[in-house]
């Protein structure tokens, strides 16, 4: 399959890239890992007149803690996240997610920033970042702004990024002493989108109650879903079996799946219920296992 012709731009600084985007407006698409954009261009579902390849901009791929946040450069490849010792030991929710995105070869190019900016409700990082309470950094011609992830996804494949802005960094608050998460995804085969998937992140207080709760849902609506009622049902409570079950039911109610080859509406909603309960149990188990800040 041959994409429509386009002009290719390879800026080497963010300033150059945002100047190009300002000039080209809606006619331009940013090329990051390309693992969603290029297939869409081959199918001619996207035919941008200009492609702005940001891979040549140095300094956009890193994973580090600083200034109260885990900071992930937007060009960080999914495989780098998967291989990171810091992510594996301190951010199991992110580690779980990085292992189930597409397949191992695709993950060598696919980027964390691209997974969010593409805003496909079937992508995995949106739910993870909703559960983590992340924010993204966007840089435009007028400078930098920080966007809370809860207001980032505005519709299917749509975000609050302006056409002249580039997503440069993802920030996740450093986890408290007893804060851990889990991501559970049911997929028909490696490389398929989720039939449904659930991200959960919990912080337990000294008494074992849920101090902070984040729950995000993948591919069960037109946008990634933050299951706010389910989160509220856990907040301040002991995460016992009855409370987890109640939260899981509320998460299922928050989902708005459509029927497709992967299953019926009823099946997917029930899957959200089951996966939410399992993700919460796993998050509780992991959070309880943390005694010191590793």
């Amino acid at each position: 399959m041959i994409p429509a012709a386009f002009d290719y731009h390879a800026p080497t600084t963010i300033g150059e890239a945002t100047a190009l985007l300002t000039r080209l407006g809606d006619d331009a698409k940013v090329l990051s890992g390309g693992q969603s954009l290029i297939p869409l261009m081959k199918l001619r579902l996207a035919s941008p007149a200009h492609v702005v390849d940001i891979n040549g901009i140095p300094g956009l791929a890193y994973i580090r803690e600083g200034e109260g946040f885990l900071r992930i450069g937007a060009l960080t490849r999914e495989s780098e996240l998967e291989e990171s010792e810091l992510i594996r030991t301190r951010y199991p929710l992110l580690h779980d997610t990085s292992k189930v995105i597409a397949d191992p070869v695709v993950r060598n190019l696919a980027t964390v920033g691209g997974n969010l900016a593409h805003a496909d409700p079937a992508n995995d990082h949106p739910a993870t970042m909703l559960a983590s309470g992340a924010e993204v950094v966007a840089v435009g011609p007028k400078g930098e702004r920080r966007i809370p992830i809860a207001s980032f996804f505005t519709g299917p494949f749509a975000t609050s990024l302006r056409p002249d802005e580039i997503l440069t960094e993802i920030r996740i608050p450093l986890p408290a002493a007893r804060s851990r998460g889990a991501y559970l995804k049911l997929e028909r085969k490696v490389g398929d989108f989720a039939t449904a998937a659930v991200a959960a992140q919990l912080t337990l207080d000294a008494g074992g109650r849920c101090e902070e709760v984040g729950i995000g849902l993948t591919n069960v609506g037109l946008t990634p879903i933050k299951a706010a009622k389910a989160e509220a049902a856990l907040k301040g409570k002991n995460p016992d079996e009855a409370t987890i079950k109640r939260a899981a039911e509320l998460a299922a109610e928050a989902s708005e799946p459509s029927a497709d080859l992967r299953g019926s509406v009823e099946y997917k909603k029930d899957l959200v219920r089951v996966l939410t309960a399992r993700a919460l149990r796993k998050a509780v188990e992991r959070a309880q296992g943390v005694t010191t800040r590793a």
């Binding site: 290719y8 390879a10 090329l31 297939p39 081959k42 495989s79 191992p104 070869v105 060598n108």
Partner: peptide, 29 residues
């Protein structure tokens, strides 16, 4: 498959396996 699924086109780019049907030639500069 030409759709990023099958991996028959896998090559190494700077040492990492990538699906060469999902990379533009100009990106390999």
């Amino acid at each position: 498959c030409d759709t990023t699924h099958c991996g028959a086109c896998t090559i190494l780019m700077d040492g990492r396996p990538v699906k060469s049907c999902t990379v533009f030639a100009v990106q390999a500069q």
